[in-house]
Amino acid sequence: MDGIRKLKPMNNQYKTVEDSRVEIKQLMLPSNANFSGKIHGGHILALMDQVAFTVASKHSACYCVTAAVERVEFLNPIEVGELVSMKAQVNYVGNTSMIVGIRVEAEDIKTGKTKHCNSSYFTMVAKEVGGQPHKVPGLVIKDRDGIRRFLRAAKQVEFTTNKRHEFHEHQDEDFQSEEYLEALKQYNVKMEL
């Protein structure tokens, strides 16, 4: 992840959210169901990854890979026979990364009733043919909702960077667990050190 910083896209190139926005719809089949008869979460995640790839590739005009997925929370189950709709767009751009927001809804095709099933955020990284990170165009924000989405994603990037810095550097023998023992008391954990 490349953090939060002022971007200078190549050739002053910027794209709007609309330039790469995607919506797909797919009927959920019995072959997509888990043992309880609901649509398998893994199937939905695979579709979301495809949509995120499509949006990021459209924005960057190159191949993209998934770097991270933030908070996949299944709010409502999806039933066999429902029509799933995934709406996705670029919410944030860094130098080589993009955060794609995806909203998943399911529609009962008999009644027309829809339900929000989940929202998630995929961090995608643009790659050149040789596998090196590729600079992505900036993002044109046209409304208050775009500002909210961009700043929410920017805060998440900042949080992730800080968390990685705090814990990643201490994963070896240098990690001082004693510094965190007091904080652990508020959790459902039993320490047997």
Rank of each mutant, 00 (worst) to 15 (best):
D2I: 07
I4C: 03
I4P: 00
L7N: 13
K8D: 02
M10T: 05
N11Q: 08
K15I: 10
T16W: 12
K25Y: 01
Q26W: 01
P30K: 02
S31P: 00
S36M: 10
G37D: 06
G37V: 06
H40L: 03
G41N: 03
A46Q: 09
L47G: 13
M48N: 06
Q50F: 11
A52K: 09
A61S: 13
C62K: 02
V65K: 02
A67S: 09
A68F: 08
E70P: 00
L75P: 02
E79A: 05
V80D: 09
V80F: 15
L83H: 12
L83I: 13
M86L: 13
K87S: 14
A88T: 02
V90K: 02
N91E: 11
N91Y: 04
T96D: 13
I102P: 00
E107G: 04
K115R: 15
N118H: 04
M124W: 15
V125E: 07
K127T: 06
K127W: 02
E128H: 14
H134K: 06
G138A: 09
V140G: 01
K142L: 06
D143H: 06
D145G: 01
G146V: 05
I147W: 10
R148Y: 07
F150H: 14
V157D: 01
N162M: 06
R164W: 05
F175N: 06
F175W: 10
S177T: 10
E178G: 05
A183M: 05
E192N: 08
L193V: 10
